[in-house]
């Protein structure tokens, strides 16, 4: 593990039953680095980032996040989850709570923040994602793009050092993708460490420091966006890019 890595995956292996989803995955992420992970479906990209905050358990290898190794130790898992925010494909907002309550819940219960302070924080986060006027609505009353932005605000309210995005725009109508990507670009420019699983190649080109291409549970290629898009090494990457860029 190199000195300034904030996330380090070393020879990580994982199986679902007999099926191996991750095969000897190695990845080092530096502080403030923006990584975009792409690859065909079933290639293990979601599983890999879900291992980073222990929504999935890896069976072999070592995962270290901000100096804390992820093991069965519940205390370690809790501390890592406080460091790492996550945004899901399906938003996963809490439908029985208002937008504001969705955001204040974790600060109040996990960080024991006073309610008034948490609400102030929530409004600040909602302004960052540009929907402060929706604070008192329920998730079901918002559009997909608005819901995803609330989900981002909910994660940011815990003040994480690292943000994981698991296909954040895949469930959105085309006209709403941009509003979510804009928020993510702002976040990247603010210096957040990000790992983003996405097929939005435009976003990848403008934001990514490094591209990671996965196939069949392995990291096939790691390169700068420039090299990745213009001069990829492996044939598998070339095939993938030709398919998603010329559809």
């Amino acid at each position: 593990m190199s000195e300034n890595s904030i996330i380090s995956l070393q020879n990580v292996n994982k199986w679902f039953g007999d099926f191996q989803v991750l095969k000897d995955v190695n990845l080092e992420v530096k502080k403030k680095e923006r990584i975009v992970v792409c690859g065909p479906s079933g290639s293990g990209k979601s599983t890999m980032i879900r291992c980073i905050n222990r929504l999935e358990e890896h069976q072999e290898g070592k995962i270290v996040v901000d100096g804390i190794e992820l093991t069965g130790n519940l205390k370690n898992i809790d501390s890592v989850r406080k460091e790492v925010g996550m945004v899901f494909q399906q938003f996963n907002l809490f439908p029985h709570l208002s937008v504001k309550e969705n955001i204040t819940l974790a600060p109040i219960w996990v960080k024991k923040m006073p309610k008034a302070e948490a609400e102030e924080l929530a409004m600040k986060q909602l302004e960052i994602v540009k929907i402060p006027e929706q604070a008192n609505k329920y998730p079901g009353q918002l559009s997909g793009g608005q819901q995803q932005r609330v989900a981002i605000a909910r994660s940011l309210a815990m003040n994480p050092n690292i943000m994981l995005f698991d296909e954040p725009t895949s469930a959105l109508d085309p006209e709403m993708i941009k509003e979510v990507l804009d928020v993510m670009v702002d976040l990247a420019e603010g210096g957040m460490t990000m790992i983003v699983v996405t097929h939005e190649m435009g976003f990848a080109k403008t934001v990514a420091d490094r591209m990671v291409f996965m196939d069949e549970g392995k990291i096939v290629e790691e390169a700068s966006p420039d090299k990745f898009f213009n001069n990829p090494e492996s044939d598998r990457t070339k095939l993938f890019l030709s398919q998603i860029l010329h559809q």
Binding site: Q90, N92, L105
Partner: peptide
């Protein structure tokens, strides 16, 4: 849905 558990865990709830 499982996503509700995952979202709750990811923001650090016990």
């Amino acid at each position: 849905p499982r996503g509700q558990y995952e979202a709750a865990q990811s923001v650090g709830l016990s």
